[in-house]
Amino acid sequence: MPYNLKEVIANKPSRFTSGHRMCAGCGAPPVARMILRALKPEDHAVIANATGCMEVSTFMYPYTSWTDSYIHTAFENAASTLSGVEAAYKSMKKQGKLPDDKHTKFIAFGGDGGTYDIGIQALSGAMERGHDMVYVCYDNGAYMNTGIQRSSATPKFADTTTSPAGSVIPGKMQSRKDLTEIMEAHHLPYVAQSIAFANFKDLYEKAEKAIYTEGPCFLNVLAPCPRGWGYPTDMLMQINKLAVDTCYWPLYEIIDGKYVINYKPAKKLPVEEFLRPQKRFKHMFKPGNEWMIEEFQKEVDKRWDDLLKLEEMTNK
């Protein structure tokens, strides 16, 4: 059935309620909510959450925003915690300890800190073992929960509280890790990169594929943080659009090894359009720092070209 936003919203109630304590304008809740809407209404889900903004603000005792079952244990282990839940499900199903006609799906949410960095071992292990689960990274490009420290997902030159733009060192000096490619190196049945964009078709359809593809699947979703990125709170969707129109955050999926780029901007915008509204890149626009924008553009171009080649190569 083709995606119809109104039908999805009207017929699939939110499984991530109001009353959470995420910041005003946070990019993560719309992402999590739409991903959960991709579940069939009759299916139950167990959600595992890594410690982070999302966890501390959606399950602060005694209130939970999750209408499905939910477990948080620690920062680095959403994937291994959910491995155990999924293994229990398999075992109990096999033994007839759970009803035959009901299905439970397993979804983990982690920020980039909990996924790219401290949680990568547990994630890699869970994916390699083949648990039937979806791991969703909501990537806001730094440790936002602890106060905007750099992570391996932080873009080069970004000013964070542990990579401050100083007079000698102009922000983070390393390029962003490409986690989506690392996950693809696990040869998973489904890997995708998405964002909250336009009518959310891209995100919804990828979530649906990931949830209903058997085996371990991975979604990497850019989720802007107005506080950490330093853009006006109301600009969430404009920032997202700039991320994809500049090809900073390409929307693509890898289905059994085949790359499909889901959005190729008619006119690829210069990356400075994406950088300019964000305070974390402010120092890059000072006179004399033009080289920083050039270098950033080069990296974006290289990664985009590589992706185009991968698409061509894997679809021959």
């Binding site: 919203i9 009207a10 309620t17 109001s18 009353g19 809740p29 739409m34 909250a196 969430l236």
Partner: peptide, 30 residues
């Protein structure tokens, strides 16, 4: 509808929105 982080835009079965739910709206302006 879908951009509201706080799910404060009620949508009916007819797929149409109604006025804001100010119990939850944090005023982000998205």
């Amino acid at each position: 509808f879908p951009v509201c982080p706080d799910d404060a835009i009620p949508v009916g079965k007819d797929g149409k929105r109604t006025d804001f739910n100010y119990d939850y709206c944090k005023g982000c302006g998205v």
